[in-house]
């Protein structure tokens, strides 16, 4: 495989590993927010912001953690036949079907960008009493879908390498 591709694949792997590890710890931020929600409610003055902030954190958690979860192989496949194939045969099929995955993620990114532009144009705020701006969470979506596309491309290059009898 060309050197530039090998570098790309390794860079993407490392980047998504780092982002994913960061997202992984958002779990504890989420717990903290929900604990605060419990405590402030018990104290008789429930917080305005906890529910929405928890929702935003959850978005960061699973959207930014997505590429890392693919690296770990935890995105399920219906592996009726797939499980019994050789590595080469899997690589052949994956090299085609991953294009469908990339297409899906591309359309999601398109929608996310559209929605982010809308958010920035109209200074969109959440229609709640806390009224947070919505563009940060929408940009997180954009970033997440973009990183997922990068990770899928890395898988594609790996499959091509496997087909050519090489490993990255």
């Amino acid at each position: 495989m060309p050197r530039s591709i090998i570098i790309f694949v390794r860079l993407v792997d490392r980047l998504n590993y780092g982002v994913g590890r960061f997202a992984m710890y958002l779990l504890f931020v989420l717990m903290g927010i929900l604990l605060w929600s419990t405590i402030s409610k018990a104290g008789g003055a429930p917080s305005l912001w906890t529910l929405e902030m928890a929702q935003f954190t959850m978005v960061g958690y699973y959207i930014l953690g997505g590429p890392y979860s693919m690296q770990m192989g935890s995105q399920v496949r219906m592996d009726l036949a797939y499980a019994r194939w050789s590595d080469r045969k899997r690589a052949w099929w994956d090299a085609f079907t991953v294009l469908a995955l990339i297409f899906y993620l591309g359309v999601m990114l398109w929608g996310a960008v559209d929605s982010s532009i809308y958010s920035l144009t109209y200074n969109e705020r959440s229609p709640t009493a806390w009224r947070p701006y919505l563009w940060p969470v929408k940009l997180v979506f954009c970033l997440g879908f973009f990183l997922m596309i990068l990770q899928s491309l890395a898988f594609l290059f790996r499959d091509i390498a496997t087909i050519r009898g090489e490993t990255i």
Binding site: P46, S47, L48, L51, S126, P127, T128, A129, R131
Partner: peptide
Amino acid sequence: FPTAGRFLTRFGVVPVT
């Protein structure tokens, strides 16, 4: 409603959407 929520916080209501 969001606007009602903004108004009702003056009386200690915690509006949820």
